[in-house]
């Protein structure tokens, strides 16, 4: 039997959810027995190929996030929103109450320790352009399953993956469902 393929990525997130994935500890061995990783910080593969499961951490805050998210949606049969930021925008969405022009000024012009004699906002096409607001990923593409939490507990992540491996609908118990 061929192994299932899993891809993971962090958009506007802190990689805390990825740390929680690693926190499944010895179950990583169980996972490695049946699954292999496609694009993921674990593999350093840069482009997502056809996958069974995609796990997305973080919300969308810029154009690149949207493109990566779409890449995941295109290639993953099942897409999981992992963590508070993916589902609600989370901490990065705190900037939604601040006009973008002020965010940029703080980052590039007026922030303490900033030295920017040209007093311009960078315009390098390599830099992803910011959306005026941070959004959760289900506001951009269809999401199949959600794992709330900051981060979701490792047990919840393992629960969801093992449910999917067993062909079940992922279901979280009361203590696995947390927003904080």
């Amino acid at each position: 039997m061929s192994k299932i393929r899993i891809a993971t990525t962090s958009l506007a997130g802190c990689f805390g959810c990825h740390m929680s994935i690693l926190d499944i500890d010895e179950k990583l061995f169980d996972l490695a027995a049946v699954a292999e990783f496609d694009r993921s910080p674990i593999t350093d593969i840069k482009q997502c190929g056809p996958c069974d499961i995609g796990i997305v951490e973080g919300g969308v805050c810029n154009a690149e996030n949207v493109e990566v998210l779409r890449e995941f949606r295109r290639h993953c049969k099942v897409l999981i929103a992992c963590g508070a930021c993916a589902i609600t925008g989370g901490i990065p969405a705190l900037r939604n109450g601040v006009p973008l022009v002020e965010c940029m000024a703080e980052a590039y012009l007026d922030g303490i320790g900033t030295e920017n004699p040209s007093r311009t906002v960078p315009n390098d096409p390599e830099l992803p352009l910011l959306l005026n607001r941070v959004h959760p990923i289900q506001e951009v593409v269809r999401i199949d399953h959600f794992l709330p939490g900051c981060p979701p507990p490792a047990e919840a992540i393992w629960q969801a993956i093992s449910d999917l491996l067993a062909g079940r609908e992922p279901t979280l118990s009361y203590t696995q469902l947390h927003y904080d």
Binding site: A81, I87, T88, G89, A93, N96, G97, R133, H135, P136, Q138, E139, I143, H145, F146, L147, P148, L172, Y174, L177, H178, Y179
Partner: peptide, 19 residues
């Protein structure tokens, strides 16, 4: 609010955020 959302198994907000 959170406790009721746990109780009713709310895993996502379902509607677009107003922010």
């Amino acid at each position: 609010l959170q406790a009721l959302a746990y109780r009713y198994g709310m895993v996502e907000p379902h509607f677009p955020h107003f922010y």
